[in-house]
Design a protein around this nucleic acid. Structure first.
Length: 407
RNA sequence: GCGCCGGUCGGAUAGCGGCUAUUCCAGGAGACUGUAAAUCUCCGGCCUUCGGGCAUCGUUGGUUCGAGUCCAACCCGGCGCA
C-alpha cells in the first residue's frame, strides 16, 4: 500500500519541488490544487465541468458522507469516485476539521487562519465544554452532533478510518484535531499530543484492515515552532522502525497566523521525509500558494474558490472582485480578459451580475468554474515555472499584480 | 355628493396611549482558507468631539404628563351607493 511519488525537479535553495503521485485512479502532477467536494459533489458543478477546468483530484469529507448518505451506502454505490462519476484520484478528510468548525469555531467568528495575531495570550483554553457547540473532544475521540438532525455520533480514530475505508478514496487522512488559532500554547500542545496518539491508532487500524488505500498522517502544533517541529518529527517517523512504511504521505493541518504561515510550513517540511507527498490542509487563497509551494507542499485543498464564488467573489489577476457590486452591472467584459475559462470565454460581468442578483443557479456554476479554473491553473503555472526555472519571476509578477490591482 | 376602509424607509408590513417604530424584500458595502455556508455581518433621515444628540409614521390643529396610536378638519387612494 505504498504510494508512488517521484520528484522531477526542485527549487534551488528551497523546499519546493515538482513531482508526480501515482494513484489507482491516475496520476497527480504536483504541485496540484485539490478541489473540494465535501458531500461527494463539487457544489454547483458536474464532474465533467470539474474535469474540463483542469482538476486532477477531488477531496470529500468523512463526517458529511457518514451522516449522509452513510459510509456503507457510499460503498454500495461503488465508492466515492464511482458514486459521483469522478474517475480521477480522490481523497477524504478524516473529520478532524469538524472538531474545530463544529467545536471551538461553531457560532463564533473564527477561522483557522488568524490575521491579527493576539498580542496577549488568549484566555480561550480549548475545544470543549460548551453545550452550544456541536463537537466535544475527549481522549478517545470526538462527540459530534449532526448538523442535519442534531443526533449524536462518536468518532474515534478507528471509526474515522473505517468510514474512510467504506467511502474508498485513494488517499485518506488520519483522525486529528484541528485547533483554533486562538487556543493557548498549553492547549495546542495538549491537542497535538492527543492527535499524535490518534495518528498511531489511525495507522494501526489501517494496517490491521489490510486496505490498499494510502493513509496520510497529520502534523499539528498551531503557530508554535517547537510544537510544529515536534509534530513533524513524530508524525514523520511514526511506526517506521517497527513495521516499516509508516504513513504514505502527510497532511499539514491546524491553524496558522496569516503572517507566518509559510514559515510554519517550512519548519514542518524541512523535517518530514522528502520522499513522501505533503498535503497542506485547507489552504488555497491565490496569494498563499506560492509560499506553500516554495516551502515544500505538494497538494492543497481549499473551499475558498468554490465558496467565495457562490457568494459572488471572483479571482482576477488584479485581485478579488465582488461581482455583486453596483459597478459591474454594466460592464460588458469578462471577469478577466486574459482568462481562458468557459465563463470568461462566453459571459460578461454584466450578465453574471444579473444572474447573481436574480439568484439564478447558473450564477454559482459560472462563478465556480472561473474561480476553480483560476486556482487550479495558477498552480499548474507555478508547477511549470519550477520546471522552467522561473518560479521567482512568476511569484514576483503575480504577487505584485494581485495585491496592487484595484479592479 | 354620501358611506365605509386605508395612508408608517424604494416596495410590503408590525405597532392599537408609555419612552429604542418591527420584520421581510429590494438597495449599498464587507467577510468567508481540510464546507454548519447559493451563507453570514454591517449600512441605510440629519448632526456627531463616535459617548451620543435631534428628527420622523399624509397635512394642520387639538386632547393628554405623554400621540404613529385618541379627536377634528383637510389632502390623497381603494371600494360601495347615488
Amino acid at each position: 500500500m505504498s504510494l508512488k511519488f517521484s520528484i522531477q525537479n526542485k527549487l534551488k535553495n528551497k523546499l519546493g519541488r515538482v513531482g508526480v503521485i501515482e494513484t489507482p485512479h491516475g496520476v497527480i502532477e504536483t504541485p496540484a490544487f485539490v478541489v473540494v467536494g465535501t458531500k461527494g459533489t463539487v457544489k454547483a458543478l458536474t464532474p465533467e465541468q470539474v474535469k474540463d477546468l483542469g482538476t486532477q483530484v477531488v477531496l470529500a469529507n468523512t463526517y458529511h458522507l457518514y451522516l449522509q448518505p452513510g459510509g456503507e451506502k457510499v460503498k454500495k454505490m461503488g465508492g466515492l469516485g464511482k458514486m459521483m462519476n469522478w474517475s480521477g484520484p480522490t481523497m477524504t478528510d478524516s473529520g478532524g476539521f469538524q472538531a474545530f468548525s463544529l467545536g471551538m469555531a461553531y457560532g463564533e467568528k473564527v477561522g483557522k487562519i488568524s490575521k491579527n495575531p493576539p498580542l496577549t495570550p488568549p484566555l480561550v483554553k480549548g475545544g470543549n465544554g460548551e453545550d452550544l457547540k456541536l463537537a466535544k473532544i475527549t481522549e478517545d475521540g470526538v462527540e459530534f452532533k449532526s448538523v442535519i438532525d442534531g443526533s449524536t455520533h462518536f468518532f474515534t480514530p478507528e471509526k474515522s478510518i473505517e468510514i474512510q475505508h467504506n467511502i474508498g478514496a485513494d488517499i485518506i487522512f488520519a483522525f486529528d484535531e484541528c485547533t483554533s488559532p486562538l487556543a493557548s500554547y498549553e492547549y495546542q500542545k495538549e491537542a497535538m499530543e492527543r492527535t499524535h496518539r490518534w495518528a498511531l491508532r489511525s495507522l494501526e487500524e489501517h494496517k490491521r484492515s489490510g486496505k490498499q488505500q494510502s493513509l496520510f498522517g497529520i502534523v499539528q502544533g498551531g503557530r508554535f515552532e517547537d510544537l510544529r517541529k515536534e509534530s513533524a518529527k513524530i508524525i514523520g517517523s511514526m511506526d517506521l522502525a517497527r513495521r516499516g512504511g509508516g504513513f504514505n504521505g502527510f497532511g499539514i493541518g491546524g491553524s496558522f497566523d496569516k503572517e507566518d504561515m509559510n514559515t510554519a510550513v517550512g519548519w514542518v517540511n524541512s523535517i518530514l521525509p522528502e520522499d513522501k507527498p505533503r498535503h497542506l490542509l485547507g489552504i488555497g487563497e491565490p496569494s498563499d500558494l506560492f509560499g506553500a509551494i516554495e516551502n515544500g507542499c505538494d497538494t492543497f485543498d481549499c473551499v475558498a474558490p468554490t465558496r467565495i464564488a457562490r457568494n459572488g467573489q471572483l479571482y482576477t489577476r488584479n485581485g478579488k472582485i465582488n461581482v455583486m457590486n453596483a459597478k459591474f452591472t454594466s460592464i460588458l467584459e469578462p471577469i478577466d480578459k486574459k482568462c481562458h475559462c468557459y465563463t470568461c470565454k462566453n459571459y460578461t460581468l454584466a450578465y453574471l451580475s444579473h444572474l447573481f442578483r436574480a439568484k439564478e443557479i447558473l450564477a454559482y456554476t459560472l462563478a465556480s468554474i472561473h474561480n476553480l479554473y483560476f486556482i487550479v491553473n495558477l498552480v499548474k503555472e507555478i508547477r511549470q515555472s519550477i520546471l522552467d526555472d522561473r518560479f521567482e519571476m512568476l511569484k514576483k509578477e503575480f504577487m505584485l499584480q494581485y495585491s496592487n490591482g484595484t479592479e
